[in-house]
Design a protein around this nucleic acid. Structure first.
Lengths: 103, 103
DNA sequence: ATATCATATGAGTAGTTACTCATATGTATC
DNA sequence: GATACATATGAGTAACTACTCATATGATAT
C-alpha cells in the first residue's frame, strides 16, 4: 500500500514539467486528439506521445478511440480548479513567491 | 518574464518529491526548527538541509531566526488547502487514479 | 578563545528523466 | 494487399536531481 504523501508526490512529479502541464492545459476545456495537441503545443509528435504516456500511466488523463483518432481528456476535470487555485496563490500580488519565480 | 505555466511547473517540481512533501507537511501546522524537522521525518541533517534549500529557493517556505534556531514555515499557508484538495481527488473512491497509484 | 550545538554549503556520484531517432502498430481508403 | 494517415514504442543519450560526505558558518555558554 502506498501512502498519501507518496501518491501526492507522484502526481506533483508528473505535473512538474512544462510540456506536460501545457498538454494538461490544452485538453482541460475539451478532449483533444494527439494531432490537435501537437498543433496547439508546437511539440513534435514523438515528444507529445512520450509525455502522454507519462500522463496516462499516472492516470491524469484518459483516452477514447474514435476511428483513427485518439481523444485525450482529463481523468478528473476538477484538477483544473486546483491548478487555478495554485496559480492564484503563486501570482497573488505581494506574495513572497512572486519575485523569485519571475526569474 | 516567466509565464504562468512555467511558474506552476516549477512549484510542482519542487513539491514532487516525497521527502520535500514530508517536510511541507511537518511545518504545515506550525513553524518548526531544522532539528524538529529532522526528528519528525527521520531524515539526516544534511538531507533535510538539502531539501530546505530547494524549498527556500522556490519560496515555498520562509525562515525566521530565533537565537541559534531557525524556524521554517510555509510562505503561503493556503498551500495546504490545495494539497488537501488534490489529495482528495486522488483518493476519491472509484477514481481512475486510485488503482494505478496504489502500486 | 574554545567548545558545543544548530544549521548551511561545495563537491562528487549514482540514479533518474526528458528528449530524439528509428521503427512499429492500428485504422481507413483505394 | 498497398498506401496513407494517426499514434505508440524501444533504445540510446545528455542533462538533471537526490543523496552523501566532509567541512564551514553562526550562535551561545564557559
Amino acid at each position: 500500500m502506498v501512502g498519501r504523501i507518496e501518491k501526492l508526490a507522484k502526481i506533483f512529479k508528473v505535473l512538474g514539467d512544462y510540456n506536460r502541464l501545457g498538454i494538461v492545459m490544452v485538453i482541460s476545456k475539451a478532449s483533444r486528439t494527439v494531432t490537435e495537441i501537437i498543433n496547439a503545443t508546437g511539440m513534435s509528435q514523438t515528444l507529445v506521445s512520450f509525455h502522454l504516456r507519462v500522463l496516462r500511466k499516472a492516470e491524469v488523463v484518459t483516452t477514447r478511440r474514435e476511428g483513427p483518432f485518439i481523444y485525450y481528456s482529463l481523468t478528473n476535470p476538477s484538477l483544473m480548479d486546483i491548478l487555478n487555485d495554485l496559480s492564484h496563490i503563486i501570482n497573488t500580488a505581494g506574495s513572497e513567491m512572486e519575485k523569485i519565480l519571475e526569474k
